[in-house]
């Protein structure tokens, strides 16, 4: 399992692995927002938490269709399936590697991009915290979607259609926590709910994704 994790990290970091693309996408989305809504700083302050959350969510979605498809196409998934590793563990580890290479950089970059959107000073800490709590769920739910669409050619669009509705609760609680903090309100309740969803997803989703992968491999 550890070997798989570090292999996925190495593959993402080497040339052609696509590391940093998600981050660049996040940056571009955030830069485009003022162009579309206007440069008024009060307006930007108000929408900043939501825009940052939505940007992070879309950036996370961007790399999902390669999460399992690469291993599927070159046959590695077949070979992994005949190895001692359980499929549930394989999906969970790959989701974890996806989070480290995609989710974690987004979490770290969010406060910098918050400056661009004139985020209220009280919002920074909770924004980072809510993204740190929420993005692991995005990666794991995304891995489930990737497992569903792994056998489908050009399944990327379908993957988005399947995964985005599943992102709704995470987005609502995450963005709500960041918004409340930015407005000087107490963000504890949405943060707890967000953490609860993430924990439940991490606990249960590998089994659904493993079952789906088993069906697709047969």
């Amino acid at each position: 399992m550890r070997a798989l994790f570090f292999r996925d990290l190495a593959l993402a970091l080497r040339a052609g692995g696509g590391f940093g693309l998600g981050l660049a996408f996040f940056l571009i989305v955030v830069v485009l927002v003022p162009f579309s809504v206007g440069p008024q700083s009060a307006l930007l302050t108000e929408i900043a938490p939501g825009v940052l959350w939505l940007g992070a969510l879309l950036a996370c979605l961007l790399s999902l269709d390669r999460l399992l498809a690469v291993d599927w196409e070159d046959g590695a998934l077949d070979l992994l399936a005949t190895s001692p590793l359980p499929l549930e563990g394989i999906v969970a580890v790959k989701a974890a590697a996806h989070w480290v290479t995609t989710g974690l950089p987004l979490v770290l970059a969010a406060p910098v991009l918050g400056v661009l959107l004139n985020l209220a000073p009280s919002g920074y800490g909770v924004l980072v915290l809510s993204l740190a709590l929420g993005t692991p769920a995005l990666s794991m739910i995304g891995a489930f979607g990737a497992a569903l669409t792994v056998g489908i050619k050009r399944g990327g669009l379908l993957l988005s259609l399947l995964v985005l509705p599943l992102y709704v609760p995470t987005l609502i609680f995450g963005a709500e926590a960041a918004r409340r903090a930015a407005q000087g309100l107490d963000p504890a309740t949405p943060l707890f709910l967000l953490a609860g969803i993430t924990l439940a997803v991490l606990a249960a989703m590998p089994f659904a994704a493993g079952a789906v992968l088993r069906v697709n491999l047969r």
Binding site: L11, R14, G75, D78, T82
Partner: peptide, 13 residues
Amino acid sequence: AYAAHADGLKAAL
């Protein structure tokens, strides 16, 4: 130990 047409090799490694 199973081996088929696809070797599951990673070009970057």
